[in-house]
Design a protein around this nucleic acid. Structure first.
Length: 426
RNA sequence: GGAGAGGUGGCCGAGUGGUCGAAGGCGCUCGCCUGCUAAGCGAGUAAGGGGGUUAUUCUCCUUCGAGGGUUCGAAUCCCUCCCUCUCCGCCA
């Protein structure tokens, strides 16, 4: 959520920034809602003040034994009270309307974000590793997975439906190895605390991160509850500190969490239908930070580097792009995507998205800190990034490290996690 | 699932209709004091919103799990929901 005072004071700049990301913003509606809200607050509070004074007076008169006077005053206050009640309803309505309006406005892009309309305008920042030159026709992960009998999409479809995966044998082991490898790396070497959160979260949590109220169709909802399956660990982990006031000395707080992720992928039909690129359920290790606002952009860089480190240790080529204003997610102020090289497609595919949300989520979720030198509380900055999406890492390993005989070499760093297995073959 | 007890400030905890945004304690901050440390003494210490000033000061409203109700007035009485604890049942 944006700061309404900031909008009032910088309307032109806000409009320009929202335009740059292709978002509509009706400033007239904003002003009308904001002014209407303030006006009614003023009225209600005046009446409440009158009532408080009157009620106090009634108490005094009663104690002094002036029953008649007290009774008369009570009658007046009765009138006032019902007036306050009516106005109070209008007030709640006005405040709710205003909040609902504010909840649908996306975050403002940071000034360092390149202008652009779509994916096409994203800018490559850096590349790591050389895509391998194959002296044979490389297979895609679907063929490799089924030939090696480690990935069975047909049976997954039977069990559940399209866009689910069944891993078997060393395939299942590989998924588990990667999860453990990533968690160990981030906890032991990058200083994150491991979290295992619930895989469902309630409405308030989803509002906090910005998934609701606008993107409900992307989620799986649990019937007869206000719970949804999480589409990423970002939701439960960011909400760990919802409605809390942290100490400045605790910052930055760094969490890493493995969770399955559930996405209905509404609106993506026809896209990436083959294989395990886009699934309704996938595993992900997520990095989340709560940062001092003054250093959140340094934290953003280091978080991205922490995620990249996984691919470096595995030896998979990748590149980092900064998303342009038009391609960023709703809550983000700046996002780097990490993309792995996928030989069968001869292109880079997203494997991690690392974002700084500044105070956008913190304001929605009310996550604040008290400055060490005292004074008013401030909103923290929240950040997160995949470190990494596990299924897509499997694709990277299968496709990049395949041999001409259809076997796959396990990256050295992963061998201990595979129980010493160095190769998957028939 | 059944029975009971509870949810109060950073924490513990008192408070059953008005002088309660809330005793007391702990913690924290500042000052004093004492060779040092500890102890002691004194003062301060919730958040959000509106108005005013915009540097500070000021003022009003709201908030005692959430929402609704009774009342001139609710932390306190009533209803619904959520959560925690104890016992019983069930269970990986």
């Amino acid at each position: 959520m944006l700061d309404s005072k900031l909008i009032e004071e910088n309307m032109l700049e806000v409009k320009k920034k929202l335009d740059s990301r292709g978002a509509e913003f009706d400033f007239d509606q904003f002003s009308a809602l904001d002014l209407g809200r303030k006006e009614i607050i003023k009225k209600v509070e005046e009446l409440e003040r009158e009532r408080n004074l009157g009620s106090k007076k009634v108490g005094e008169l009663m104690r002094e034994g002036k029953k008649d006077e007290a009774g008369a005053l009570q009658e007046d206050m009765k009138q006032l009270s019902s007036q306050i009640k009516d106005l109070g309803e209008l007030r709640s309505k006005a405040e709710e309307e205003f909040r609902n309006f504010m909840l649908t406005i996306p975050n403002l892009p940071n000034d360092s974000v390149p202008q652009g309309k779509s994916e096409e305008d994203n800018k490559e920042i850096r590349k790591w590793g050389e895509p391998r030159k194959f002296d044979f026709e490389p297979k895609d992960h679907i063929e490799l997975g089924s030939t090696l009998d480690i990935l069975d999409l047909d049976r997954a479809a039977k069990i559940t439906g399209a866009r689910f995966a069944l891993y078997k044998g060393l395939g299942a082991r590989l998924e588990r190895a990667l999860i453990n490898f990533m968690l160990d790396l981030h906890t032991n070497e990058h200083g994150y605390k491991e979290i295992l959160p619930p895989f469902m979260a309630n409405t308030d949590s989803f509002i906090g991160t910005g998934n609701l109220p606008k993107f409900e169709e992307d989620l799986f909802k649990i019937e007869d509850t206000n719970y949804y399956l999480i589409p990423t660990a970002e939701v439960p982990v960011t909400n760990i500190h919802r409605d809390e006031i942290l100490k400045e000395s605790e910052l930055p707080i760094k969490y890493v969490a493995y969770t399955p992720c559930f996405r209905s992928e509404a609106g993506s039909y026809g896209k990436d239908v083959r294989g395990i690129i886009r699934q309704h359920q996938f595993n992900k290790v997520e990095l989340v930070k709560f940062s001092n606002p003054d250093s959140s952009y340094e934290e953003h860089e280091s978080l991205t580097e922490n995620a990249e480190r996984v691919l470096q240790l595995l030896g998979i080529p990748y590149r980092v792009v900064v998303l342009c204003t038009g391609d960023m997610g709703f809550s983000s102020a700046k996002t780097y995507d990490i993309e792995v090289w996928v030989p069968s497609e001869e292109t880079y595919r997203e494997i991690s998205s690392c974002s700084n949300f500044e105070d956008f989520q913190a304001r929605r979720a009310s996550i604040r800190y008290r400055p060490s030198e005292g004074g008013k509380t401030r909103f923290v900055h929240t950040l997160n990034g995949s470190g990494l999406a596990v299924g897509r890492t499997v694709i990277g390993i299968l496709e990049n490290f395949q041999e001409s005989d259809g076997s796959v070499t396990i990256p050295e760093a992963l061998v201990p996690y595979m129980g010493g297995v160095t190769k998957i073959s028939n």
